[in-house]
Design a binder for these strands. Structure first.
Lengths: 346, 346
DNA sequence: CAAATTTTGATTTACGTACCTCAGAATTTC
DNA sequence: GAAATTCTGAGGTACGTAAATCAAAATTTG
């Protein structure tokens, strides 16, 4: 049988109340007695029954998710997944509140974090913006002992406890590697190939990192592939469409396009409107209804994806663990980069 | 506040005992009364608190994992993951027993399943062998009401409740697609290319399905790629090494190798020993220490992987849900095909 | 209509932990 | 050595559900 507090009391020769004081760090126990109790705990290999403890405390984990009110498919999907978690909250002893903030706005994010600080929830998850003021706000939350998880976009070297998202440098490297292989880089010869990159904004860390990984691999492994200056489409379908259309018109020799941001609808429209001699090889991010269709019909060749559902569930698991002071299963919480070709669409 | 059994009793105007009888399907309730109680349950939106119920029942989920005593890295890793789950069992209210059976032996598997039947655990997970007698044994378990999950290898059209593993046809298709792209299939011209396939055994369903997917894509999308007759290496490093070495000697023009089984150590040794003009493109399955090293040093170009840890954890979650009659989150339980290039190794 | 049977209510204990109170013991302080 | 302080023990209640007992009420049966 699993040892209980009663067993500890018996072995240590103290009362239940004393065991309780030791276990929950309450005052009023001499260090000699505390030692005896701790010894008994160790010798029995006692582990507190979390379910029973939570029942006794009638505890619910109150979490806040701060999400940018973006209108691209990925963010909408992410919000949807958080809503799903809200719907399951009664089963999971969670009480999740969603806070919307304007996108790409560090001040708004800081304000939201400050509001959270006052509320003192059991944990916070937020899509980070890489700015010093955000880092400072995070530090204040840490001082207050509120567990924090960054979601999708990280805030490295900050006081956050965990990052629930993909390694964007690795994602960019993977895209570069696929691009080089698919273009048959090693045997391109003197002629080489030209590749365009469409990003949302170079101010966003994810995008910067993806570009960095992509450029590194291309430079190292496929030196005869040229990368055109980055097009910043602000994740706006209309802008992206005109930019890509224009780029294709100017450079008839574009052999590949890497779309590392969101808002691929414009890209797809531009590609389907273009009637070049041979369509370029396209690698994009995030599996949405439009990229899925484009993948199926051959407009896009590969899609790198992060599973928003996994990210949200992982964030919740990690926040719970942090709130309870438990370790996290690193292998379980690693968010993987999915690579989808038309042949392994789920 | 979340409604409790007390609230139901109050609303329905009956006693707690009657509510309990209805909730747990115990006899001794007139259908009129039962109706009133059920109405109250529905109107309150009551959901039983599983943690409290399990505490009251002092319930532990007893599961049995039947695993083939294979000595390849993947199966060893899988067993290791189940051991990890055993180690966590006290936290997770599980009591997991591991049963080893000789590999590729339907009779042994059936015997193990029969033994399980006598023991009546709360659930069983097993690596299936696709044989009628196994299917029959599974049906007997279903009759006995024991939830069943197939692990890694499925038993389609059987009485199993769930399959915790990858879609092997999709995996084969993905491998075929990558092979075709990496060989630059579309522009190979008249000359074409030759590809060798190394499998463990065509008697194993996973391997058959992977080959099927691979062949289909090659035939459809890359008709100028020729697939040599399948080499069956029985997942044995020594046999695989000699077979690949021989194949490379006979066919100097082998441009690609698809290794769809386990036991890649032999393949890697043969590749590193060969000194052809240009090394073939290699796609293999399962990320192990040896395939990881080969990927890093360029001996292997891509590895398709299934995460054993995810499979085991998913199997446990599903067995728990089935034991409690709860629905499973399909999106969470889908086991994905990881594609690893040297650039996205975790 | 009485007896037998079924249905229901009231109450209790239990699961393992948290948290509270109060009294008594041990220790320290003066 | 008495008073003040600090520890400790004993006991209870609570969380939400399960499961049991026993008596009372309602219903069916003969």
């Amino acid at each position: 049988m699993k040892p209980t507090v009663h067993d500890i009391a018996k072995i240590a020769g103290v009362s239940l109340a004393t065991v309780d004081r030791v276990l929950n760090g309450r005052p009023g126990v001499r260090s000699v007695t505390r030692g005896k109790v701790e010894e008994a705990i160790a010798s029995l290999g006692y582990v507190r029954d979390l379910a029973a403890a939570n029942l006794a405390k009638s505890r619910t984990y109150s979490f806040v998710f701060i999400l940018p009110a973006n209108d691209n498919s990925f963010m909408i999907g992410l919000t949807e997944e958080v809503r799903g978690a809200v719907a399951r909250s009664s089963f999971e002893r969670t009480d999740i509140r969603i806070v919307d903030v304007p996108p790409f706005d560090p001040d708004a994010l800081v304000a939201a974090l400050e509001a959270v600080l006052a509320e003192k929830p059991a944990g916070v998850a937020f899509v980070a913006i890489d700015a010093p003021e955000v880092r400072a706000a995070a530090e204040r939350l840490r001082q207050a002992g509120i567990p924090m998880v960054t979601l999708v976009s990280d805030l490295p070297d900050s006081s956050r406890d965990h990052y629930a998202g993909i390694d964007n440098i690795a994602a960019g490297r993977t895209a570069g590697s696929l691009m080089g292989r698919f273009l048959n880089g090693p045997s391109l010869g003197e002629r080489g190939a030209t590749v365009a990159v469409l990003a949302g904004s170079m101010l966003v860390r994810d995008h910067r990192e993806r570009l960095e990984g992509f450029s590194t691999v291309i430079a190292q492994a496929y030196p005869n592939v040229r990368i055109l200056p980055v097009l910043e489409g602000r994740d706006d379908p209309v802008l992206a469409e005109t930019m890509i259309a224009e780029a294709l018109r100017r450079n008839a020799d574009i052999a590949g396009i890497y779309s590392l941001g969101a808002g691929n609808r414009g890209l797809i429209r531009a590609l389907q409107a273009a009637h070049g001699p041979s369509r370029p090889l396209v690698i994009a991010h995030e599996l949405t209804a439009s990229t899925r269709a484009a993948l199926a019909d051959g407009t896009i060749d590969a899609v790198l994806n992060q599973d928003a559902g996994h990210e949200v569930r992982s964030a919740i698991r990690v926040l719970k663990a942090k709130a309870d002071g438990l370790p996290v299963l690193a292998a379980q919480e690693r968010i993987r980069i999915d690579i989808f070709l038309k042949d392994n669409l789920p």
